[in-house]
Structures are given as C-alpha cells and as structure tokens.
Design a protein around this nucleic acid. Structure first.
Lengths: 202, 202
DNA sequence: AACTTAAAATACTGTAAGGTACTTATTTAT
DNA sequence: ATAAATAAGTACCTTACAGTATTTTAAGTT
C-alpha cells in the first residue's frame, strides 16, 4: 500500500507501521474477541495514536477487515495450500489433521480461530468485515469441494457421499476442533474427537 | 420467585410480569445475540421500565443468566429428556435427530441455539451467565456420557470408542447443526450433514 | 528562508448503554 | 385518616468508546 522509494513523497513521512498495528490487532481480536477489545486498547497495545489508525484503516470495520485478511493470508494459508497441492487424499488428510491439531497454546499462539470466531459474530460486524469473512468461507468450501471431487475421480473417496455434504462436514469438523481447543479441551482428547470424525470417510 | 396469594404483601403490588420480560429477553438474545441487544431495547420491546428490570434481575448479568436458564429449561429440556428416557440407542438417536433438525424458521423460532451462542461469547459474559452456561454444558456432556455407557452395556454402541470422546463428538455435531442452521444452510443439506456425522457409530 | 504538503499526537465531541436517584402511585397496618 | 412500605417510572448520571477537529512536526519545493 505504501510507496517504497518510488515516489519521493511530499509531506511528513509516515512512521506508523501498518504491519505492526495489524499484528497487534490480529492478536488482540484473536485473543479477546472482535467485540472484546476497543480501538483505544489496540492503539495502546501497539503504541500508536488513534488518528493514525483511522488514517490507515478508515474506521473500525476497516481495521477488523484488514486484521481478518492478514489472519487469513498468514495463519490460514497452509490450509488452503494443503487442498490445492496435488497430494493423495490420505496424505492431504494427514497434513490437514496436523494443521488442525496444532497445539497453539504450546506454540505461544492464542487458542481457536479468528475466522471461525468472526463468522460466528455476524451480528456485530461491519459490512467489509462481513463480506471478507463470508468470501473466505466460500472459498474454503469451494477448495474442499474441488479437493473431494479430485479424490473421487481418483477413487480415494466414497462416491456415495455428496461432495457438498462432505465439504460442509469437514469444514464443520475443523471449526469444532478450533472451538474445543479454545474451550481448553486437552490436546489428546481433541485428537481422538477429530480422528473419530474422519472415520466417516473410511 | 414471587408469592402467589401466600403472603398478603405490604406495599404497592408488583405489576411487572417477570415471565413476559423473560420471554422477550430470550427471543431478543436468541435473535440478535447476547451483545447485539441492549437492556434499553429489551425494556422497549417488553413495554416495561428499566428500573423494573433491575429490581427483578439485579443487573444485565442477572437478566442474561435468567434468560439463558429459561431457554435451557424450555427449549432444551426435550434434549435432556431424550437422554434420560430409557429408549433404545437407535430410538434415542432418531429422536435426537428430529430435535436437532427441527426447522426452527418454519416454526417461527429464531435460528440457532442460545446455549451454543452463549458458550461461544465467553469473553463478554458476566460471572453468573458464564457459570450458568458452563454448568448446563457440563450436565449435557454428562448426560451424553451416561446415555452412551448405557448403550455400551446393551451392546448397542461400539465399545472401542471412548465414552467421553463420543460424547464430545455428538455434542459438537449438535452445535454444528445449530450453527449451520443459523447461517442459513438448507434443511435437507443440514440433514445430510448430520446423518453423515452419525455414520461414525454404525 | 519562506511556503506547501501531509502525517503525528493531543484533546475533544457525540452517543450508546449500564446503572441509579428521586418522585409518584398503590397497597397494608394502625 | 394517617403512616409505612414498596413498586412504577421519569429523568438523570457515568463511562466506554467510535470517530474527529486542531495543533504540531517533519519532510519537500521554490
């Protein structure tokens, strides 16, 4: 978004670090919920002034949307990759399982999933954030469908299960694990639940 | 909570209809979310004054807790009954399916489940509401575990699936359907997803 | 050096919402 | 009839917070 050495730039140079603010915003929304942290608080945590944030992101909806997109393109990118990389169905399922069952707490990450949490607080979202979360949700579902269709054509997947149904089911199981992890369910129990969920395909 | 003709009562008699306010509160929180509707708005919808609500429920946490408990004891009671009634596992599963897949929209009810929604907005809950939602969640899980254990002893349930794992799984599948229904997924698709989820037991 | 441009930060405004003080009304007790 | 008790309701207080006007600062331009 900013010009790096291209244009000399006219007035006072920017010092507000968009990336830093976004990192703080992602962590804050992820940890405290989208309605659990104010812009003032994010500014305090990031060590920036409020008008700076408004100059950069427009309004609260803009900040939330940008934070969500950053979360999608960093934290959730591996998931999209698993579905598009041309792995065998079982390999992909293993990688998916590893991704979902990652012990976020042990890695210093907040529990749960910002995408899932955002999707579930539709009532309080601005327009842009809502569109963003919806778009990504649709894309993920499409990715799952294409992945399943490929598996079907490779005879790696039970043909009698409708593709969309299977995609919705897997999507839901991923969200479920994220939820349970956030609720503090032990990792080994999570693993058993997710593995049980996957037995519908074997 | 109020005395029915027992004590004569001293001062001005109550006219605030606790039950009516609770109905409105349940519907409001259910429809608009626990953070999506203010006490002012609930007062307006119920046609009562704010101090009346505070006299009756103490504070917002008290109102939310009372609304949640009412939801649990009315809307969710059938679910608890299914688990404790001494049905065969398959019969119980059929009744459970009917309950979960009830087309709430077609019955003039809000979509989704207030218990699930409340459980998922822990960040913004008061102490009493949090305790209430947690307690009911635990009870439900225990009910599921006992139901599964009974089914195991009747050889109606695969012994190799740990009881707690199965209970967490079923609980999660119910919540999933509630979520998907709230998101507007078609009823027949919902049905396919839930039936697919149940195939892990057969 | 004076002027222009644009970002930084302080300090402010407006509003929504939780909660309450105070007045008014309706009952029982003496 | 008067007093006591207690609920009802209006009008208010306080705070949190989204958003902004205004001033200050740091650059480029002439």
């Amino acid at each position: 978004m900013s010009n790096n050495a291209d244009k000399p730039a006219r007035g006072r140079p920017r010092t507000l670090q968009r990336e830093h603010v976004l990192e703080i915003a992602v962590e804050s929304y992820w940890t405290d919920g989208l309605t659990g942290v104010s812009i003032d608080e994010i500014c305090r945590r990031a060590g920036v002034s409020k008008p700076g944030v408004y100059r950069e992101f427009g309004n609260e909806d803009g900040l939330k949307q940008a934070a969500l997109e950053r979360y999608q393109s960093t934290i959730l990118a591996p998931l999209a990759d698993i579905l598009t990389d041309d792995l065998s169905f079982d390999q992909a399922l293993r990688k998916l399982t590893d991704f979902v069952l990652l012990d976020r707490k042990a890695h210093g990450l907040p529990a749960g999933c910002l995408q899932v949490a955002t999707c579930r607080s539709k009532h309080t979202l601005g327009k842009r954030t809502r569109e963003s979360v919806h778009k990504f949700g649709d894309q993920t579902l499409m990715g799952l469908e294409q992945w399943i269709d490929r598996a079907k054509s490779n005879r790696e997947f039970a043909i009698e299960i409708p593709t969309r149904t299977a995609a919705l089911y897997i999507d839901a199981q991923i969200a479920t694990v994220m939820e349970l992890q956030q609720q503090g369910v032990a990792q080994d129990e999570l693993k058993r639940v997710f593995k049980l969920a996957l037995t519908v395909f074997s």
